[in-house]
Amino acid sequence: MLVLTFAVAGAGNCVELEGMPYVFARTRVASLVMPVKCAHRGGPLHLAEFIGSDTRLTCPWHGRRVSVTRLLAQSPPAVRRGNTVTAVFRVPAGTRHTIRHLPLSAALSAAGPRPGGAGSGP
């Protein structure tokens, strides 16, 4: 297991390992650590928007749609604390990785759905 901490937004918001860049995306469906290479021809999913669908992102290259729920189910488990995210990648701890910046589309930088209020009562 490789546990990495990187930024949610701004400098250092992308971690790349084994040839795949990942970013923390906050979509209206869910927040998740997502791979940003489209499964079709490697298009830039970090620039994907919701077009004609509320739940599926559209790849800017050839318009293929990918379900956020499906991405979430396959995503590395992660936790965001403020502007920092820590994710667990299921690769050997010593796996080489780099951290850099990738711009995010509006669809990926929306704040996630708000969970319920704290506390037991009201």
């Binding site: 998740l32 590395p76 488990p77 936790v79 704040a111 708000r114 704290a118 506390g119």
Partner: peptide
């Protein structure tokens, strides 16, 4: 108490967000 707890600790709902399938 529940109101005070929400007043003081409610911001954590936005500050911390857990995602993905954890094993």
């Amino acid at each position: 108490r529940p109101y005070l707890e929400r007043h003081v600790f409610g911001f954590l709902d936005d500050e911390v967000e857990v995602t993905g399938p954890w094993t």
